[in-house]
Simulated scan of single mutants.
Amino acid sequence: MTATVHRLKTTTPSLEPMLQLVAGDMAAVNAVILDRMRSDIPLIPELAGHLIAGGGKRMRPMLTLASAQLIGYDGTRHHRLAASVEFIHTATLLHDDVVDGSDLRRGRRTANIIWGNPASVLVGDFLFSRSFELMVEDGSLKVLKILSNASAVIAEGEVNQLTAARRVDLGEDRYLDIIGAKTAALFAAACRIAAVVAERSEAEEMALDAYGRNLGIAFQLVDDAIDYVSDAGTMGKDAGDDFREGKMTLPVILAYARGSAEDRKFWKDAVEGRRAGDADFAHAISLVRQTRAVDDTLARARHYGQRAIDSIAGFADGRAKDAMIEAVEFAVARAY
């Protein structure tokens, strides 16, 4: 039997099919999240709840649930594991906002601005601990290995990004290593664990892993592109945050490589923190447009998005597969 070939759409996609697909399961996941956020220390659920209730799409746990439906799993183990995935993600966000000094996330003040850095770090630690409790309760050593490895890889990616900050000589290969670790690793693990609990083949595990990994890379490429083409209302963070933090994202890497000597001097000064004003950011936007750096970043995102879609070509056609394909299309289309 020949699998249907799917290609990225040119029409505007939606995440709604995914939301509808997993709605019932997500209610169970949310119940686990609320239960495991509880603590006798009032600050913990207050601070964690601020971020968890902050309007995020919960893409990662949705991927666990959708992957389970794709392969026909009809148990309930994936509910707790999807909650575990969300706790890992939320913990990393709390820590990232402290490291980056961010003051806005999803259009709201960050937890570190409201409660301070120490509280944000410690509640992040609490959520990591809750995540590992849920993994242990599941009882699968393989699931524990996959998710604990993803947590370690995420941390390595964040440290790699930290050491690469304000380094104008950062190349595309290292950049891809960074986003593959800090973003794509959890997307991959979130999808793969569904095949583990369903006791499916190694080939199906790795197909779901590849879907999540390529989607995660595409997702981050788009995030990095829209820092230069969007606004705070669209992005949920301040426009130009990456620029002011001296991050060598792909649009900057490409614009620097393609720029004149004068342009390169500007980028060096900007990345090293000497050109961080509004006028400097406006000039940076003009340079990434002139060099087609954003266009090419988004072209790469479409490439990885297509790889994600191709990864699940061998699974049976149906509602779950359609929703997972459209989720990829939605992730790529956010920049348009």
Rank of each mutant, 00 (worst) to 15 (best):
A284F: 05
A301T: 02
G273Q: 06
Q306V: 06
R300Q: 11
D295M: 13
G277M: 11
A284C: 07
A276R: 11
T291F: 13
V271K: 00
L298T: 03
H283N: 12
Y304H: 10
G277V: 14
L287I: 11
G305L: 01
D278Q: 12
H303I: 11
R300C: 01
F281I: 09
V271T: 04
I285C: 14
D280P: 06
R300A: 12
A299G: 11
A279D: 15
D280I: 01
R274I: 00
D295R: 15
R274Y: 06
R289H: 14
F281M: 08
I285Q: 14
L298S: 04
A284E: 07
F281N: 03
Q306H: 06
V288K: 13
R307T: 01
A293D: 08
A282V: 10
E272K: 06
D278F: 04
A276Y: 01
T291I: 09
A308L: 07
F281L: 12
T297C: 04
R289E: 15
D295K: 15
T297L: 03
Q306W: 06
A276D: 14
A276W: 06
L298D: 01
A299R: 14
A284V: 07
T297S: 11
A276C: 09
G277R: 00
R289T: 15
L287D: 08
I309K: 00
V294S: 06
D280Y: 10
V288E: 12
A293F: 08
A282G: 10
L298V: 12
R275W: 04
I285D: 08
R302M: 05
A293R: 13
R274Q: 10
G305S: 05
G305Q: 02
T297K: 09
A293P: 09
V288L: 10
T291K: 13
V294Q: 04
R300F: 03
R300N: 03
R289Q: 14
A282Q: 14
G305N: 02
A282W: 05
R307C: 02
I309Q: 00
Q306C: 06
R275M: 11
Q290W: 11
R292M: 08
F281A: 09
D278I: 12
D295E: 14
D295P: 14
A301G: 04
R307F: 00
A301H: 02
Y304N: 05
A293G: 08
G273Y: 05
E272F: 05
V271G: 00
H283Y: 14
F281Y: 14
I309T: 04
D296V: 02
L298I: 13
D296A: 01
A279P: 08
I309R: 00
R302T: 04
F281D: 02
A293H: 11
R307W: 00
Q290A: 15
H303K: 06
D295T: 15
V294D: 04
D296N: 13
T291E: 10
A276M: 05
A301M: 01
R292D: 11
Q306F: 09
R289W: 10
Q290T: 14
A299H: 09
E272M: 09
V288I: 09
D278L: 12
Q306N: 05
T291L: 10
R292T: 10
D280R: 11
R307H: 02
R302K: 13
L298P: 01
D278E: 13
H303V: 14
T291C: 07
E272A: 13
